[in-house]
Simulated scan of single mutants.
Amino acid sequence: MQEYERKQLLERVGREGATVGADIPETITVQGEAIDLQTFVFEIKRRETIPAGERERVERAKKNLRRERLERVERIEEDDISRETGEELARSIVGIDRALNALENLGSTDLEREQQAKQAADTKRWMSFLQKALGREDTAASRGGR
Rank of each mutant, 00 (worst) to 15 (best):
R15Y: 13
R46T: 13
I24F: 05
L70P: 00
V41S: 00
G17T: 14
R15P: 13
A52T: 15
P51C: 05
P51T: 12
F42C: 02
F40G: 00
L37P: 07
G53S: 14
V30Q: 03
R66N: 12
I44S: 04
E59V: 10
V20G: 03
K62C: 12
I35E: 01
N64C: 10
T27I: 10
G21D: 04
Y4L: 14
E26D: 07
E68H: 08
A61E: 14
R57V: 12
E16D: 14
R60W: 15
L65G: 07
N64K: 15
F42K: 11
E5L: 12
E59Q: 14
A52K: 15
I35D: 02
R57I: 11
Q2G: 10
A22E: 04
G21M: 00
Q2R: 11
E33A: 12
E26Q: 06
A52F: 15
P51M: 07
K45T: 11
R72D: 02
R55Y: 05
Q31H: 12
K7M: 13
M1F: 09
R66F: 08
D36L: 09
L37Q: 02
G32Y: 05
R46G: 07
E68N: 09
L70E: 14
L9S: 05
Q38T: 02
R57A: 15
G14N: 14
R67M: 14
R66I: 04
T39D: 09
E68I: 07
L9M: 11
A52E: 15
G53I: 06
E3N: 09
E3F: 11
T49D: 08
K45D: 04
I24S: 00
A34Q: 11
E16C: 06
L37S: 03
K63V: 12
L70C: 10
E33P: 02
V13F: 01
L70G: 05
E3Y: 13
E11K: 12
I50G: 01
D36Q: 10
D23C: 03
G32I: 00
E68S: 09
K7Q: 15
V20Y: 09
G17Q: 06
K7S: 11
R72G: 04
E26R: 05
I44C: 03
T19L: 00
R69A: 05
V20N: 07
E56A: 13
E71N: 10
K45G: 00
R72A: 03
I50F: 01
L9C: 02
I35Q: 04
R67I: 11
A18T: 01
K62L: 13
V41A: 01
R6L: 03
D23T: 12
R69N: 08
Q31W: 05
E54R: 10
L65M: 10
R57K: 15
Y4M: 13
R55G: 03
D23S: 09
R6T: 08
E48Q: 09
E11I: 01
M1R: 08
R72S: 06
R15V: 02
E59G: 08
L65S: 05
E59R: 14
V41K: 00
E54D: 11
R47L: 12
P25K: 03
E11F: 09
